[in-house]
Nucleic acid binder design. Structure first.
Ligand SMILES: [Mn+2]
Ligand SMILES: [Mn+2]
Ligand SMILES: [Mn+2]
Ligand SMILES: [Mn+2]
Lengths: 223, 223
DNA sequence: CGATAAATTTAGTATAATCTAAAATAGATT
DNA sequence: AATCTATTTTAGATTATACTAAATTTATCG
């Protein structure tokens, strides 16, 4: 069990996890884009991950990949590191939620299990990272999420921002300015069926948001 | 200037720095031992470091290497990261001085300059790491050290422990038990010219220490 | 000095991860 | 079904680092 996967492999597994959360297979091209690696290289690596002793992925030519149980555990280990690190960096070094991601991206591969335990304990075992994303438990289980994309809400509905997914630093800074942070209560004021824009009130601020923003913001208790 | 040296190269430079602190060249074999890499591999890497555009080391066949100005800056950058990390892990996550080294060894290569600045600021720009070793300044200058190996002291002399160098976790735990920590006042009670053992009092505890311990403990103001 | 040992270097091989260019396949469109 | 396009795979090359075995150089010592 003391295999210690390479950083590269850890990154592949993490992105495969994220791309297969919706139940679909992770395609070569999608992985290529996320990993900033050419498709040919992805095929290569994916074939290797499928043929190592305890296989890390299930692979069928031209059909993309899914994680095996072992692959999923390894992915969740990296994701737990990543999200705990994000929370930790924000709390102890004053990083903003827009800045932490990049730093955690590199640290996630090199911290020890001891480091992981110490961070978790020091923060009182937080459930979510600064972007509101769930942190896999110490025994590597991803808690169930119960949230709705903001894009599904319609005028009059109120909800609480729970998380912002896959947002780049630029967008996170933008959202912060609009007061759209995890935990904030919002109300939908208007909806345009033509462009799917939503007019949203958060605190005193009112903003009109396009679909490629509202689909990345997740809320709880729409009502 | 945005070269970003590989982790391997960073480790070579760091160890070359340490091996050349005494003014001598770092030999292939010495590096091989420290880096846990075969001598042939060291020769290979060292030749490469000598021939990159701004050379990182000065190399002459069979004579070992020294650092160039560029090589030294790169080494000090890694050492600054390492020592700040050690201090930070001890202060914020409760690591013991025996445990931090290994963790810092991996983190030193992946933290950003921003991370470095934040740590330094959060700790009030510490001068020394948990082992009492000097931390290179932000502009990568190693402050002057003024200390004496404990092995040079003789009975009746008093001094303050300043640092413990190159000690493994085992030894650090041992010294901690004997109360031999940086900042502690000690008195030499006895000396044996046959085996170079020193009898040393620290607080209430008296210990007899051999040369391979007393040569790793450095003290200030022997008097 | 000259033999022997120790340290170092050379030469050739291996592994991991990536790339480019070309070939093959799958999916969509007429 | 035939064709075009997008996706994926194969094949072969490249870069970085390390290894083993053999050759060479330097150091030591009788
Ligand atoms: Mn990563
Ligand atoms: Mn995140
Ligand atoms: Mn140290
Ligand atoms: Mn290191």
């Amino acid at each position: 069990m003391e295999s210690s996967l390479t950083i590269s492999i850890q990154d592949y597994l993490k992105h495969i996890y994220e791309l297969t959360e919706d139940g679909k297979n992770a395609s070569t091209n999608a992985l290529s884009e996320r990993l900033n690696v050419k498709p040919a290289s992805v095929t290569n690596m994916v074939q290797k991950l499928a043929s190592v002793k305890p296989a890390l992925v299930e692979y069928q030519k031209h059909q993309g990949v899914t994680l095996t149980k072992e692959g999923r555990k390894a992915a969740l280990e990296v994701i737990r590191h990543h999200r705990l690190l994000e929370a930790w960096l924000v709390q102890t070094l004053g990083y903003s939620w827009a800045e932490v991601h990049e730093e955690a991206e590199r640290l996630e591969h090199v911290i020890s299990e001891d480091f992981e335990r110490r961070m978790a304990a020091a923060m009182g075992h937080p459930l979510r990272d600064p972007h509101g994303e769930l942190i896999p438990t110490a025994d590597l289980v991803m808690p169930l999420e119960d949230s709705t994309p903001l894009s599904a809400l319609r005028p009059k509905q109120k909800a609480k921002v729970q998380s912002v997914k896959n947002a780049d630093a630029e967008l996170l800074r933008y959202l912060e300015n609009l007061g759209l942070l995890p935990g904030v209560q919002i109300t939908v004021l208007d909806y345009s069926s033509f462009d799917h824009n939503l007019t949203v009130k958060a605190g005193a601020k009112v903003s009109v948001l396009g679909l490629n923003i509202t689909s990345k913001i997740f809320v709880e208790h729409p009502g």
